[in-house]
């Protein structure tokens, strides 16, 4: 019941410029097993750039991201050969895009989309793949009868659930999410958030969640990091940062939210 002090991912002094624009300036952070960290801030503050640098999709100009599952941060994202990085991305890590169409194969049935990672890992039994697909459809609360339908026939909320199923089927220990709820209608956001919260808690994975929505951060994240102009200006337990913000910019951000 005690917290283990060994992080599973550490970023040190990540710096990245796009021409004259400094997108990341000496950003450092740690992720611990099973925790949900929300990265919040306004548009253009560098949230998604940071997420992609941590994930290994963007190479920083300076700094490094180290990771490891068993308390040893023995591997470096930036130094990983492409094949190993791809393997990591398709098994032990997952990435949930804001737009599910960026992740789903629209010409392949829902079931096929869900089990792709299993086939990449070597599963060669069709019956097993079907079973797993049905299991995960139920888990993300999609009618199993839709297993052979194309994703294009699904609503936005269902596509996002499909993306979650497709990603979580390999039981990643670390999930990267880029604004997973902002493309959804308000009417389905709540249900999706609840599903996400339950899955994250049940699967015991760590999540790095980029969101501009402080309410989403409050409901999902244990910790938040506030970004402004490529820097993390404040971090802490989510309710601490949102209810007792210390930095002037965080105070502005929190006070700018319209009450629902």
């Amino acid at each position: 019941m005690n917290y283990s002090p060994a992080p599973i991912l550490i970023a040190r002094d990540l710096t990245l410029s796009f021409g004259a624009l400094c997108a990341l300036e000496s950003v450092s952070l740690e992720i611990h097993p099973g925790e949900v960290l929300a990265i919040v801030g306004e548009s253009g503050s560098g949230k998604t750039t940071l997420l992609n640098a941590l994930y290994g999709a963007l190479a920083p100009d300076a700094g490094e991201v180290r990771f490891g599952e068993n308390g040893e941060l023995d591997r470096c994202v930036q130094a990983l050969p492409r094949q190993q990085l791809r393997h990591l991305h398709r098994s032990a890590w997952g990435y949930v895009h804001q737009n599910p169409r960026d992740a789903l194969r629209m010409e392949i049935t829902a079931g096929g989309n869900i089990v792709e990672r299993l086939m990449a890992a070597g599963e060669r039994h069709y019956g097993t793949l079907r079973e797993k697909a049905l299991f995960w459809l139920q888990k993300v609360e999609i009618d199993p009868k839709r297993i052979d339908d194309l994703p294009g026939t699904f609503s936005g909320g269902m596509q996002q659930r499909l993306q979650i199923a497709r990603t979580l089927i390999s039981h990643p220990y670390l999930l990267f999410m880029d604004e997973p709820t902002s493309g959804l209608d308000v009417s389905v956001q709540a249900g999706f958030l609840d599903l996400l919260r339950n899955l994250v808690s049940e699967q015991r994975m760590a999540v790095i969640l980029v969101t501009h929505d402080l309410a989403v951060a409050r409901l999902l994240a244990g910790r938040v990091a506030v970004m402004q102009r490529g820097r993390i200006i404040e971090t802490g337990v989510t309710d601490q940062v949102l209810d007792d913000p210390q930095h002037p910019y965080t105070q502005l951000l929190v006070s700018s939210v319209l009450p629902a």
């Binding site: 917290y3 244990g222 910790r223």
Partner: peptide
């Protein structure tokens, strides 16, 4: 550290505010 605070809240200290904040 924050992670430890969250564990302690989960197991050892509870707080009931005047407002209900849920999904």
């Amino acid at each position: 550290p924050p992670q430890q605070l969250l564990v302690i809240r989960r197991h050892s200290i509870a707080y009931v505010s005047q407002f209900l904040r849920v999904i």
